[in-house]
């Protein structure tokens, strides 16, 4: 063995050789880089091709496309404000409902649950996220809506007749409504907000929590004193990313919101959202109408991107890496 090694030409074979091996090496690097850049390419293509197809509608309506309140394809009127309004209001309502529940579930899994209930808690959230949105929509329109209708009617007949309150809870009451859409949306964004909130709670140093408990804090005082202050940024990120998800949610909303382009403060009245109107009317549209619907897609894209970027920015500042699922 020794002799064999000694006879080897020292160093000659260290000179760069194996052109093929090196080529394979650098072409692999090229391929993976190209795959990564594909994300950029797709996003650019989304903006370019959709804007191009929507151009006739933007040209037709000008700035009125986003400020106009009349959407009437038969009259060639394309004012998208009622849809923007519907998207924002239904999403914000869902957010208000979902946030406390999500924080509660996150606290349950991370702090409150007995050890053997923790894993089932995680399963619960995963399962909630796994049910396809169209199934929630089906349930909403065939079961939840009809079930809630008499109660909603009662609220409209009592609280809805009081001054001031009538502006929000007043009738007439529809089977499909902004309220029902917000409820369904709530169920759909609880999982994402919960999982981000949990990740944030996980970053609270254990010794800070231990310190709070060692000072004689109750569990709630520990949560308020050690967990919440540490998680403020992360919770803002969770809210923004949940809002982004709610704004883009399509099918469930399309089934339960009522498809009525109007701006009203009454939550039991039917309304419409950007995603829902695209889903519900794209099939039978043509010409400028179709361009206008694609234009709605562009506006929706822009709005969700802004909200998501803000969410990611805050998330990054709070030290989290990703946006969860």
């Amino acid at each position: 063995m020794t002799a064999k090694l000694a006879e080897r030409p020292a160093g000659a074979d260290l000179v760069r050789s194996g052109i093929r091996a090196q080529a394979a090496n650098s072409s692999f690097a090229f391929v993976v880089r190209a795959a990564a850049v594909s994300v950029f390419v797709i996003l650019v293509l989304i903006v370019v091709t959709m804007t191009r197809e929507a151009w006739p509608a933007f040209w037709h309506s000008g700035l009125g496309f986003v400020t106009g309140t009349d959407w009437s394809p038969s009259a060639d009127l394309y004012g998208a404000l009622p849809f923007v309004y519907g998207t924002m209001v239904s999403s914000l309502m869902a957010l208000v409902l979902a946030l406390p529940v999500s924080i509660g579930i996150a606290l349950f899994i991370n702090e409150y649950a007995p050890r053997r209930l923790r894993a089932p808690g995680v399963y619960l959230v995963d399962l909630l996220a796994a049910i396809p949105s169209v199934v929630y929509g089906l349930w909403g329109v065939l079961v939840l809506g009809p079930f809630l209708l008499p109660y909603v009617q009662k609220v409209a007949d009592t609280i809805g007749t009081w001054p001031v309150f009538s502006a929000v809870f007043g009738g007439p009451v529809g089977l499909k409504s902004m309220f029902l859409a917000a409820l369904i949306l709530t169920i759909m964004i609880v999982p994402i907000i919960t999982s981000i909130t949990r990740e944030v709670f996980d970053t609270v140093p254990a010794d800070q929590k231990a310190a709070a408990v060692a000072l004689g804090a109750t569990r709630w005082e520990m949560v308020r004193g050690a967990v919440f202050p540490h998680s403020r940024n992360g919770m803002v990120a969770a809210v923004l990313l949940g809002l982004g998800r709610a704004m883009g949610e399509t099918i469930a909303v399309a089934l339960v919101i009522g498809s009525t382009a109007q701006i009203t403060t009454r939550i039991f009245a039917p309304a419409d959202s950007m995603a829902a109107v695209i889903a519900n009317t794209f099939g039978e549209s043509s010409g400028v109408n179709r361009a206008a619907l694609i234009g709605l897609g562009v506006v929706l894209f822009a709005m969700t991107i802004v909200v998501n970027m803000a969410g990611q920015f805050v998330a990054r500042r709070s030290g989290r890496k990703g946006a969860g699922t």
């Binding site: 000179v15 760069r16 194996g18």
Partner: peptide, 20 residues
Amino acid sequence: TYGDVDLYDDRIDPVQVRRR
């Protein structure tokens, strides 16, 4: 210097170096 070459010469392939 390894044997009669400088390991940090531009012409040296680090992958081959690690094999030896």
